[in-house]
């Protein structure tokens, strides 16, 4: 019953915003400025029928994924180093603060000069995801229960087992919460990098072309794709997080 109520509410909210979009498009009355939801959806289906659509989407997703996959171990490594050494922490913290406060477009423009054009989306994704993950993993390390660490010291537990059984379980909630927040950010930043750097075979290039050739239906259709990727990736992280929680709960039910 609760699920049905939730589904009805979600459909109602979606219909409300689509109606608002439809009304705005009708008021504007020019599909070259604002196409209707139906026109956008139709264009999305047309694009989905082209093989390039799936190739460009997959390539964009791959570039973003590479950035995230490099950011994850880097965040864990640097968070561990910074937690273990006050000097490394003092040296590294300003760099992370700088990464967090620099506008994404500045990073993209700097990256155009510094790195190979094709690696820009991955590099920008990394720059967006790394500080969020790093700070949360470092927080997780600092919140690790001291009494458990003391206990493991008394029993002479190896450092590998300490990491596996005490540190990782303490860090996990912080890490997954940060990952959920940052994957949506990563998709948006990655596509923005593709637009500014005009990366061939990418969603960003298609967006840029749609703007240049005055094709607002294409622009909106690709925007829908970006939103969908963002939501799917966030949901995937959520599912992973729930799976981890469920594994503990199920095991406790045995």
């Amino acid at each position: 019953m609760k699920v049905i109520k939730k589904a009805v509410l979600s459909i109602g909210v979606a219909l409300f915003w689509l109606a608002l979009w439809q009304a705005a498009a009708m008021i504007v009355g020019n599909p070259l400025i604002l196409p209707t939801p139906a026109e956008t959806l139709l264009r999305l289906f047309e694009l989905a029928g082209e093989s390039n659509f799936w190739i460009f989407t997959a390539l964009s997703l791959l570039r973003i994924l590479i950035g995230i996959l490099i950011a994850i171990p880097a965040a864990w490594l640097f968070a561990a180093l910074c937690s273990g050494s006050g000097i490394i922490n003092a040296l590294f913290s300003p760099a992370v603060t700088l990464m967090k406060s620099t506008p994404v477009v500045s990073f993209i423009l700097i990256a155009i000069f510094l790195v190979d054009r094709h690696t820009i989306p991955s590099a920008i994704t990394f720059m967006m995801v790394f500080p969020v993950l790093f700070e949360n993993v470092r927080e997780g390390i600092s919140q690790t229960p001291k009494e458990l660490l003391q206990m493991s010291d008394v029993f002479g537990i190896s450092w590998i087992l300490k990491i596996k059984r005490i540190y990782i379980p303490a860090i996990k909630p912080f890490f997954f919460s940060a990952l959920t927040t940052s994957v949506g950010l990563a998709v948006k930043a990655g596509v923005a990098a593709e637009v500014v750097a005009y990366i061939p075979d990418s969603i960003g290039k298609m967006l840029s072309d749609a703007k240049s050739y005055m094709e607002p239906a294409d622009l909106l259709a690709w925007t829908v794709v970006i939103i969908a990727i963002s939501l799917i990736t966030e949901k995937a992280v959520h599912l992973r997080l729930n799976h981890t929680k469920r594994r503990v709960t199920n095991a406790s039910d045995r």
């Binding site: 009494e147 458990l148 206990m151 008394v154 029993f155």
Partner: peptide, 11 residues
């Protein structure tokens, strides 16, 4: 040395 603490300190 092995020890049982005042609080159980279980994982």
């Amino acid at each position: 040395i092995s020890m049982s603490f005042q609080e159980p300190r279980l994982l």
